[in-house]
Design a protein around this nucleic acid. Structure first.
Lengths: 133, 133
DNA sequence: AGGATAGGTAGGAGATTGCCTACACGTCAA
DNA sequence: TTGACGTGTAGGCAATCTCCTACCTATCCT
């Protein structure tokens, strides 16, 4: 797969000057990290019970510790967790910033389910996103 | 991997009586569908340009039509799109309801990035989710 | 009826994922 | 210092993903 952008424009960058390639890659990494139930569960544990060392997390899963370590690596590289070294332990902490990007991603879809639930959603199909009044 | 729930409780069902297994499976399907950049782009196209037949969508991607058909199948089975037959065409339409579930999933994380951006996020680490007030 | 158009399905190849067991490395305690 | 502890990494293996090229079915037009 080559084109992940609009599929049309030249697409050199954003208004901020941030290369789109980077943004798209980060988005991809975030969604990929969230695609796994174990990793989502790790995020939940860190959220509900605060920062924890690896073994405490591993105890909650039916898999060997090295496997969980790999999941933590994916989360770390996606920026969804951070690690702090404390003696021979590494304390993992939730870093929710990338989830804010997911919420931003969701935003333009919001009116679709809100309007539809109010029963007047079919209008949307004749009035697409880029044709606002 | 066996446990995708809390990792602790008996977890027989929800307050609504809906089996948790079904909910977790649906969540998994949704996140898995969103894990692919092509599929996210399809959703964006349907959102910005309204319902379209398969070929119109396929024209936007650097891949063969059958491959896109498979992506549409994934999206369909995740409930993110619906198809309506019109002659020999099949019009695909965005169905955003599962995205509302994603937003619900995001909610408990929200205060993490909001508070942290305000610079007082470290408090959260001493006051985890299930210890409110 | 016969050809063209729209799109789903089958089956296969190559890459990626997710698990495992072994092992390496740094830290702490005796 | 020596051994135990806490984690990450290497390498292997089976399953899944994502793309492809046929191929099939259904609809429309002449």
């Amino acid at each position: 797969m080559t084109r992940t952008g609009t599929g049309t424009g030249p697409e050199v960058g954003t208004p901020d000057g941030v290369p789109v390639e980077t943004l798209a890659a980060r988005e991809d990494q975030t969604f990929a990290a969230l695609a796994n139930a174990t990793r989502r569960e790790v995020l939940r544990l860190l959220r509900e019970q605060g920062p924890q060392p690896v073994q405490a997390l591993a105890d909650r899963f039916a898999m060997r510790r090295p496997s969980l370590s790999e999941h933590l690596k994916v989360l770390r590289e996606a920026g969804l967790v951070s690690e702090e070294r404390a003696g021979r332990q590494r304390i993992y902490r939730l870093e929710a910033a990338p989830l804010a990007d997911v919420q931003d991603w969701l935003h333009p879809y919001e009116r679709f389910w809100r309007d539809r639930l109010k029963g007047l959603g079919d209008l949307l199909d004749r009035m697409p996103d880029d044709a606002e009044t």
